[in-house]
Amino acid sequence: MRQRIRAARREMPEERRARAGSAFRDALTTLPQLTMGGTVAVYYSVGTEPDTHKLVTALWKRGTYVLLPVFLPSRELDWAGYDGPDSLGYTDQGLLEPTGPRYGVDAVRRCAAVVCPALAVDRRGLRLGKGAGCYDRALSYVGPNTRTIAVIYDTEFVDSVPSEDHDRPVHGVVTPQRGVHWF
Results as ranks from 00 to 15, higher is better:
2 R>I: 04
11 E>A: 15
14 E>D: 13
16 R>A: 15
17 R>W: 14
19 R>H: 13
21 G>T: 03
24 F>C: 02
24 F>Y: 03
25 R>W: 08
26 D>Q: 06
34 L>A: 06
35 T>F: 10
35 T>D: 07
37 G>T: 02
38 G>Y: 05
41 A>E: 01
45 S>I: 07
46 V>I: 15
46 V>G: 02
49 E>T: 05
50 P>A: 07
50 P>F: 04
50 P>Y: 07
57 T>K: 13
58 A>E: 06
60 W>Y: 14
70 V>K: 05
70 V>F: 05
73 P>L: 10
74 S>A: 13
77 L>Y: 00
78 D>C: 08
79 W>A: 01
81 G>I: 11
85 P>L: 09
86 D>V: 10
91 T>W: 07
98 P>E: 06
101 P>E: 09
102 R>S: 14
105 V>K: 15
106 D>W: 11
108 V>W: 00
109 R>L: 10
111 C>Q: 04
113 A>P: 01
124 R>A: 11
126 L>T: 05
127 R>Y: 11
132 A>N: 14
134 C>Q: 05
137 R>H: 09
138 A>P: 00
142 V>P: 00
150 A>S: 13
151 V>P: 01
151 V>S: 03
151 V>N: 06
151 V>R: 00
153 Y>F: 13
154 D>N: 13
154 D>C: 08
155 T>N: 12
158 V>L: 14
159 D>S: 15
162 P>H: 12
162 P>L: 06
164 E>H: 10
165 D>W: 05
165 D>T: 13
173 V>C: 04
173 V>S: 03
175 T>A: 13
176 P>K: 04
182 W>A: 13
